[in-house]
Design a protein around this nucleic acid. Structure first.
Length: 272
DNA sequence: CGTCAGGTAGCCA
DNA sequence: TGGCTACCTGAC
């Protein structure tokens, strides 16, 4: 890989592997990454990112390199648990994913372990995505809405009850509509996504945070629920509403970054 | 074999 | 709002 980029405060490993993104495989020290219809290679050595098959501008946007992450993290680092997580995974960044791929990926995620989510997404791409040749390997693009036609066709994907969600969402969403959500206030964008079949708060927030630049979105899944309850509520059961209010007040406009770090942290160091 | 996994929809108090 | 359950599938 001849092309390189100097990056300070960046961890490729944590950024790709923290669960916000699914389409990568690690071969030796190199990550084979697929996003929308791109296939490219990445490798990091200290503060240098080596890359191939993709332009620098794309990487700047994808990894949000022009964003001053240090100063955003300062906003939330009064919190001791969060500070610990940020030290442990320094350089982990939010990825700005393709909105369509992001929405459908998380639509596949309900009640599944990460390994199997990746499995489903991979077969979805293999089955309905276009072939992309890169060097001497074959990759797949993420299928466009019109390529995802019906349950029957998706049988191979083995997505279970999620199949109906994939089909219905594919029939009533187009890419421009998704991008348009960026113009709306957070609450409205979230409500709009939640109008889609199979999309509740969690998946809506994942889509808003990981692909549509809503940094105040804070996806709450079972890990987060457990962690928040344990650390901030003394282990007592908390209502959904109380938890959401706490999160908004406590973590503020960059709550999404806090979520990224806390989720990764609690996955590896489960509370309780 | 039973249970459970990064959720959601539908139904009920 | 809060609490419950079924839902496909694959892995322990």
């Amino acid at each position: 890989m001849a092309l390189r980029l100097k990056i300070t405060s960046f961890s490729l490993k944590d950024t790709l592997e923290c669960g916000q993104f699914f389409r990568y495989t690690k071969v030796g020290g190199t990550y084979h990454v697929q996003s929308a219809d791109r296939v490219f290679l990445l490798r990091q050595e200290r503060e240098t990112l080596f890359y191939e098959g993709v332009e620098e501008d794309f990487l700047r946007s994808f990894f949000r390199l022009d964003e001053d992450i240090e100063s955003m993290l300062k906003e939330v680092d009064q919190d001791p648990t969060l500070r610990q997580a940020m030290e442990r995974y320094r350089g982990m960044r939010l990825i700005r994913q393709d909105p369509w791929e992001c929405l459908l990926s998380f639509l596949c995620s309900s009640a599944k372990a990460i390994a199997h989510i990746r499995c489903i997404i991979e077969s979805l791409c293999r089955y309905s995505g276009k072939k992309i040749y890169f060097r001497n390997t074959l990759g797949y693009g993420f299928p466009e809405p019109h390529s995802i036609k019906n349950d029957l066709q998706l049988g191979e994907v083995r997505a279970g009850f999620r199949t109906a969600y994939l089909v219905q969402v594919s029939q009533c969403v187009d890419r421009n509509q998704l991008l348009h959500l960026k113009e709306l206030p957070y609450r409205e964008a979230r409500q709009t996504l939640m109008g889609l079949s199979g999309v509740g708060k969690k998946i809506a927030d994942c889509t808003l945070l990981y692909s549509l630049d809503f940094l105040e979105a804070f996806p709450i899944d079972t890990w987060m629920k457990r962690g928040l309850q344990q650390v901030y509520f003394g282990g007592k059961r908390v209502g959904e509403k109380a938890m959401e209010e706490f999160v908004a007040n406590h973590f503020g406009p960059y709550a999404g970054y806090a979520q990224l770090y806390l989720f990764h942290f609690w996955r590896h160091h489960p509370p309780r």
